[in-house]
Design a protein around this nucleic acid. Sequence first.
DNA 1: GATGAATGAGCGTTCATTCAT
DNA 2: AATGAATGAACGCTCATTCAT
Lengths: 213, 213, 213, 213
Amino acid sequence: MFKKHDLRAEETKKAILEAAGKLFAAHGFESVTIREIAKEAGCSHTTIYLYFKDKEGLLHDLSMPALNQLERQFETILSEEKLSLEEKLRGLSREFIRFCLLKRNMFTILFTERAGRVDEAEPELDINRTRNKLFASMMAALQGCLELQQHDNRLLTFSRIYYFALYGIVGTYAHSEESYEQLRERLGSTFDDMVDVLLAGFKKKLNREEGTI
Amino acid sequence: MFKKHDLRAEETKKAILEAAGKLFAAHGFESVTIREIAKEAGCSHTTIYLYFKDKEGLLHDLSMPALNQLERQFETILSEEKLSLEEKLRGLSREFIRFCLLKRNMFTILFTERAGRVDEAEPELDINRTRNKLFASMMAALQGCLELQQHDNRLLTFSRIYYFALYGIVGTYAHSEESYEQLRERLGSTFDDMVDVLLAGFKKKLNREEGTI
Amino acid sequence: MFKKHDLRAEETKKAILEAAGKLFAAHGFESVTIREIAKEAGCSHTTIYLYFKDKEGLLHDLSMPALNQLERQFETILSEEKLSLEEKLRGLSREFIRFCLLKRNMFTILFTERAGRVDEAEPELDINRTRNKLFASMMAALQGCLELQQHDNRLLTFSRIYYFALYGIVGTYAHSEESYEQLRERLGSTFDDMVDVLLAGFKKKLNREEGTI
Amino acid sequence: MFKKHDLRAEETKKAILEAAGKLFAAHGFESVTIREIAKEAGCSHTTIYLYFKDKEGLLHDLSMPALNQLERQFETILSEEKLSLEEKLRGLSREFIRFCLLKRNMFTILFTERAGRVDEAEPELDINRTRNKLFASMMAALQGCLELQQHDNRLLTFSRIYYFALYGIVGTYAHSEESYEQLRERLGSTFDDMVDVLLAGFKKKLNREEGTI
DNA sequence: GATGAATGAGCGTTCATTCAT
DNA sequence: AATGAATGAACGCTCATTCAT
């Protein structure tokens, strides 16, 4: 049972998170000021410091739930039995791209190795762990598609190439003015094609090598 | 014959360029302050304005010589008659990646569309023009390899995918601590493989579509 | 009912306005720095931006209330039916001089044509508009005293001479250490005499010309 | 007999003075930078410090010769026997206005009471002495025109009014963009009229008072 | 005598953050 | 719980001035 205060506090915190999420997504972490977030959330800028350590902390607290949600979406896709392995990889990739283009501040978080500051040991790890899990899921799906052993060097190479391609798509549009919907409309099929191209290329390369040997 | 003055000036200017190059590469143009560059270069922040118009001008003077050199290397590769089209594309890509990983501040410059302020027309354009020329060269080579018409929509799609892949490689390691030599040693063959994979994938996709029709 | 917060804020704002008024009057708008104003007001320079848009905005907020008050005083004088035209001109002049010597920062504002930047249309114009209205009132009164047509070139000449005389009085003492009361005591009759002298001179010149023709 | 060095030095100094005079007159003391003066004078900006203590010192050294020249012109006018007293006052005024509008930096020097810094006692005095002499000349001429005793309070009042009028003219156009020639063309007759108006007004006021008594 | 190199102080402004209530 | 008031640090940039040659 909650008191009124608690409820009110919870609401305020939620409003701040929503505002920050919206603004970070739209203009990027650096460009958004604390005061803008407060205005959007309908509270004073000092209130933000009641719930979050600082601006960076707000970003962190904002990221984890989103990442967890993506994680659950990954799990859902992977557990759908009626999907083929290739379809699963396609689904994961599409979801991953969608996620990054919707919440663009995630780009930095997902793709940039954080310095791992010594002073505050814990919280970064949560993000790193989840991020690694996400990439591992995609790589596992890729492995399945290509029918490669886990320690096959070719899998490592192909995984990296796949990673580069994802990085390229997300990074290219991370700072774009276009909304996700606009990008999806204009480039969605290109993103899909990329998966096709890569899978076809991987397979061709495997065949050729096998044929060669 | 140089006077001591000239030598000192040249050294200072060089120190500033080196410092700026290093810091821009490490943290990005926007994040680096004039004072940080000065500190790294071992001079006062006002000294920078002795040699460069302003921060943008410093970026420009830092970029153009390098870009022009890359441009000439592209021309050399393209004019070598004994190379096949695929080998030329491979060469251009390798050279491009090498360039970006050697001078990492170039990443932002090459891949970020700059506003191109209307009020002072000239200097920004140099960079944009050269950059566009570089990408156009690679896309022309790709077009040749795939034997596509210039206005074939599939060429546009494949060009974008190729661009994403390049962006991914360069962006991934733009802020890495590893030197180019280390990266080349560890990942050079992966970069080469990516070109193979993409070309194979593109061709497969073309065949399948043709076969389908 | 006011909270302590409101009172504190009002005091700070007032302190800033007073400091700015004093310093602008003493050294001119351009020469005074934001930090000097803050020091004089006993606050941090950033606090100024809490209450005023920027330095120009501070000048504006400082000037407009005073100008509006003077405008109303002009209207009062002009609407007093029992005053002759000459007495009205005398009253306007006396009030104008009094105003300028009481709020000396007004001198720059009233007598210096400001660029009126094109990009941000509004605030500058308020000042210009009010200033023009004030001078127009005085010139209309002068016109009435001299019984000249509005487009008579001699009116233009006399108006300019009248303007120069006002400028001279106000400018001479704008940076003086003497208070308005002291100046009024010592020079009030001189100021009044100037109006007499000018009106007499204007009339004499008109008569002579008419006589000549 | 001078050495070459001395001649060269003299030339350089002269070039600096000319450049500074031209630029100060055109844009005002504050707006002109040391480097601009050096560029105009065709020397390095450091050379200026060889001949002048600092920027303020340059202004001072620039002012004295000009003031002395004006002083001599005053003497010439006053010694011309064929001129009436009124014509002499008119001549002095015209010359004074011309001088101030040609060398606008003089405005501040002539009309602003200098703080009289304690640290460097002498040089300011030169300027003050000359300035006082100039005004004294004009007031003496005015006294002659009005046939008043030197200690007549009315002379003091009229002198002040005359001073205000001159201040107004010069101050109004001290920061204008128009050249002296343009102003002379457009407003020369207005300036002349002002002398007429004031003299006529002064006389009328004297007569009326005499008549009244 | 003359100069290019270099600098500290300062400009208006913005920002994340803290203090007192 | 929440807020308005206030601030120090920093930004890119300019300037008069000094140093070493």
